[in-house]
């Protein structure tokens, strides 16, 4: 399977995701944001980091970069797109995913391992997980507080487009287990066709027991499947 990782000035998780993808046998290419053509890709990853120093709004400038037109075209033709952290923010700025990511409600940058629950395991990204499986995944962000309007929130719920929700170690989804104030504890969402996933937690940091755990592996294994 061919994957492409888009690299912006200020991306800093691009190499982590490349290592994770290669470990999972993807044939990966790095694509600089000024490119106007994408290599043949089954999966495009928009990695985490601080593209353009988070100027204006997180992801706003990257969301208008040259390569993004190609990413949008690929997304419309059904290519799998994964946006992690800043990548999620960029996807909302391009309009590929609805809603936006506000500043964390405690106004602090949060870097810690949190529990998230797999809400839908019938997608190309999550088929290897069990329904309601609890994962421990790292988050590291300042703007992870997902917000969207009521109509869209209802659509997310009714069409099963919520990918992950923050929960506690027993799987309870509550205000106490919500690290950043995200509406309905949302940690990740899909578009209607479920070929685009945006998520704040970093699955690429959870693919090796030596440095963390392996809770992220099945996301990449699902895609490979």
């Amino acid at each position: 399977m061919n994957s492409s990782v888009i690299v912006f000035p200020g991306s800093n998780c691009d190499r982590d995701i490349a290592v994770a993808l290669e470990k999972m046998q993807f044939k990966n290419k790095m694509v600089w944001h000024k490119e106007t053509k994408l290599p043949k890709s089954d999966l495009i990853v928009i990695p985490g980091g601080f593209s353009y120093g988070d100027y204006l709004r997180s992801g706003a400038i990257a969301g208008k970069s040259l390569i993004i037109d190609e990413v949008i075209k690929a997304a419309k033709s059904g290519c799998l797109i994964l946006g992690i952290c800043n990548g999620f923010q960029i996807l909302t700025e391009t309009g590929l995913l609805k809603g936006t990511l506000l500043r964390n409600r405690n106004l602090k940058f949060i870097n810690k391992d949190v529990n998230i629950k797999v809400i839908n395991n019938k997608t190309s990204f999550t088929s290897k997980y069990k329904l309601n499986q609890i994962l421990k995944i790292n988050i590291a962000h300042n703007e992870g507080n997902y917000f969207t309007d009521k109509d869209h929130l209802n659509k997310l719920k009714n069409e099963n487009l919520i990918a992950f929700q923050y929960c506690d170690v027993n799987g309870n989804i509550s205000d106490q287990s919500n690290p950043n104030g995200a509406v309905e504890n949302i940690a990740g969402i899909y578009n209607s066709k479920k070929n685009i996933l945006g998520m704040m937690p970093h699955p690429e940091r959870m693919v090796d027991n030596l440095i963390s755990n392996t809770d992220g592996i099945n996301l990449f294994a699902s895609i490979m499947n």
Binding site: L56, A60, K64, T100, L102, F147
Partner: peptide
Amino acid sequence: KKLLVNLII
């Protein structure tokens, strides 16, 4: 509309 403002928020 194109860049300066995020009309959602």
